[in-house]
Each structure stands twice: as structure tokens, then as C-alpha cells.
Amino acid sequence: MNPANYLVLSGLLFAIGSVGVLVRRNAIVVFMCVELMLNAVNLSLVTFSRIHGNLEGQVIAFFVMVVAAAEVVIGLAIILTIFRTRRSASIDDVNLLKY
């Protein structure tokens, strides 16, 4: 097996995540799809790090993880705040960013 197969897996996961973002309506599920895309990118970073024999890819993947954690915290807090005012977690209900 060639190490490039990990890149193929990463591309598949990214495409599935993007389809999920396009199709699903529940804000939390959309958010989970974004997480999946971030993970696919991380996997490709780690694979490129191995292909090039250079650890910087792993360091950048680590930074991506930290930023993703911060993003999850803020994103879920925003979803909760919207749910409090709208009583809905559907992204179709927040098409007007007013009131």
C-alpha cells in the first residue's frame, strides 16, 4: 500500500463533510460536518508530513485542532443562544439576522 492512500481517504471524508454541510438543516449536524472536514484536512496534513519527512505538518495539524476546539466552544454557544430566542435549531430559521 502506498502512503498516498491516506490522502485519498482524506479527500473522501472532506467531500462527505461538504455534502453534509450542503444538505443538512440541523445546525448542530452542520457543525459536526464542519468538524469532519477539519479532520480530513488534519489527516492530509499528517500524511504530507510523513511523505515529506518533515514534522511541521504535524505541528500545523496540532494548531488546527486547537483552533477547532475554540471554534466548537463559540459555535455551540451561538447555537444555544439562537435556540433560546428562536426555539429552533434549524438553519433555515436564522436566515434573517435581526430581531
Binding site: R50, I51, G53, L55
Partner: peptide, 10 residues
Amino acid sequence: VIKDQPAAGL
């Protein structure tokens, strides 16, 4: 493109 590219390894 990368099918036959060797990997350097870590």
C-alpha cells in the same frame, strides 16, 4: 499524481 511517489517517512 502521487501513486508511485515514495514517502520519506518520519
